Computed example of a mutant assay.
Amino acid sequence: MSRTVVIVDPLPRTLDLIMEPDVRARLERLGEVVVSEEQQMSGELVDTLLPDTVLIFGQTDMPKERLDRATKLKAIINVESNFLPNIDYKTCVERGIWVITPAAAFASPVAEAALAMGLDLARGITQADRDFRAGVEQYGLAGNATTFRFAGAPVGIIGFGDLGRQFRDLIRPFKNTVRVFDPWLPGEIVTNADCIASSLDEVLTQSRLVFVFASVTSENQSFLGRREFAMMKKGAAFLLMSRAAVVDFPAMLDAAQSGHIRVATDVFPEEPVHANDPVRSLPGMLLSAHRTGGTRDAFYALGSMAVADAELIMKGLPPQLCRRADLATVNRLRSKPVTVS
């Protein structure tokens, strides 16, 4: 008897984390759902199921030899949110197998947190709290000697994908001049968003706040280093909201410790950060434990977006909500797999 199997291999996510009961019920209607959540699905079980599998939710390794056996497969839906190098994307494209991820679910909460952290660095909110608790607070103008208004301050955005565009929309009421550096986009997209398409050097030298939303690629690892931090305005704010690997992390910490710039980061080279890591005590730093995107509603959006697009795919229609793997870019991505939900 013919089977219609849906492999669910979502670690480090779990179905309870990413799907509300009604979405889980819709998933169950897509086929015979086989779930592995305690550990990654064994290779033996995957290989047994592949001939009858129509959908894969998760980060299962799918090289060509497995795709050759998955003759019914319609889509691989990565619910971790990165396109990983464990799939033969070329073969998927040739066979019309969609490879998608609902990563945009995190864009709005990350943008919201980036705004909050930018306001914090500009106005010295966390530092003022620390000073008050230590009994060294200053009042009125004296307490604002090193602060500046976010409203009207020149803003730079590095990386203008889902995150960058959500952030740009969020700050419109503040009437900032916004410069954008993104070598993967034509200038028309940037200017249509009421921004100025700029070189990296222009963004760094002309902005009072620089927000980094760039993905890690084979071409931009550690591309923000000592030279780039040195050219920023003294007292400017640098906010790392995407992936740690796009910066020379020690150089960024040195720039913060020296007092040349103030820094906020939500990401780190190794996570969880070691208890004795010196970053925890550096001055000039606003720290966040890779939490800006991980809101309850964002995780549920991962599941609902994934299931909604799977329903379309099962009807022979293209996905509409998730990001699609593009051969021109997917093999350049270098993001580390997520290990903490």
Rank of each mutant, 00 (worst) to 15 (best):
Asp182Ala: 04
Thr147Met: 10
Asn144Val: 03
Arg95His: 05
Phe132Met: 15
Asn86Lys: 14
Cys92Asp: 11
Asp68Gly: 02
Ile189Met: 13
Pro109Val: 08
Thr91Cys: 09
Ile97Pro: 07
Asp120Lys: 06
Val110Gly: 01
Ile77Tyr: 08
Phe132Arg: 15
Ala145Thr: 07
Arg95Ala: 00
Leu170Ser: 02
Lys175Ile: 03
Ile100Tyr: 02
Val180Tyr: 13
Phe132Cys: 10
Arg133Pro: 01
Val178Arg: 08
Ile100Cys: 06
Thr146Ile: 09
Asp162Pro: 00
Ala113Pro: 00
Leu67His: 03
Val110Gln: 08
Asp129Phe: 09
Ala104Tyr: 02
Ala128Tyr: 02
Leu200Val: 08
Ala145Met: 07
Thr126Met: 03
Gly156Ala: 12
Ile196Asn: 08
Val155Ile: 15
Ala116Pro: 00
Asn144Cys: 13
Arg130Thr: 11
Leu163Glu: 03
Pro102Tyr: 09
Asn192Ile: 00
Leu185Phe: 11
Asp120Phe: 09
Pro85Thr: 13
Gly124Ala: 05
Glu137Lys: 10
Val180Asp: 13
Glu94Thr: 10
Gly143Met: 02
Lys90Met: 04
Glu65His: 07
Glu137Trp: 15
Pro186Arg: 08
Pro85Lys: 13
Phe132Ser: 14
Ile125Glu: 04
Ile158Tyr: 00
Leu119Trp: 08
Thr177Cys: 05
Pro183Gln: 02
Asp131Arg: 05
Leu200Met: 13
Glu80Asp: 09
Lys74Ile: 01
Val110Thr: 12
Asn176Gly: 03
Ile158Glu: 04
Asn78Arg: 11
Ala151Asn: 06
Gln166Leu: 01
Leu115Lys: 03
Val178Ala: 09
Leu141Cys: 04
Phe150Ile: 03
Asp129Thr: 04
Gly143Tyr: 12
Ala193Ile: 06
Leu185Thr: 01
Phe181Arg: 00
Ala113Gly: 01
Leu163Pro: 03
Ala105Ser: 15
Gly140Ser: 05
Ala128Met: 09
Leu73Thr: 13
Arg95Asn: 06
Gln138Ser: 12
Gly96Trp: 12
Ile87Ala: 05
Ala75Leu: 09
Ala107Leu: 01
Gln166Pro: 00
Val180His: 06
Thr191His: 05
Trp98Gln: 14
Gln127Pro: 00
Lys175Thr: 12
Thr147Ile: 10
Ile189Lys: 12
Thr101Ala: 02
Phe181Ala: 00
Gly161Glu: 04
Glu112Cys: 08
Gly118Glu: 14
Gln127Val: 11
Val99Ile: 13
Ala197Phe: 08
Asp131Leu: 09
Ile157Gln: 03
Ile189Leu: 15
Asn82Tyr: 12
Pro102Glu: 10
Ser199Asn: 09
Ala70Met: 07
Leu141Met: 13
Gly152Asp: 09
Asp120His: 00
Arg168Ser: 10
Pro85Trp: 11
Pro154Glu: 11
Lys90Ala: 06
Asn144Thr: 04
Ile125Asp: 06
Ala134His: 13
Glu202Asp: 14
Ala116His: 06
Arg149Gln: 13
Phe83Thr: 04
Asp129Ala: 07
Pro109Met: 03
Glu65Asp: 14
Ile158Val: 10
Ala153Gln: 05
Arg130Pro: 05
Ala111Phe: 02
Gly187Trp: 11
Glu137Leu: 10
Leu119Met: 15
Pro186Asn: 15
Ala122Ser: 11
Ile171Tyr: 00
Asp131Glu: 15
Asn82Trp: 12
Glu65Gly: 03
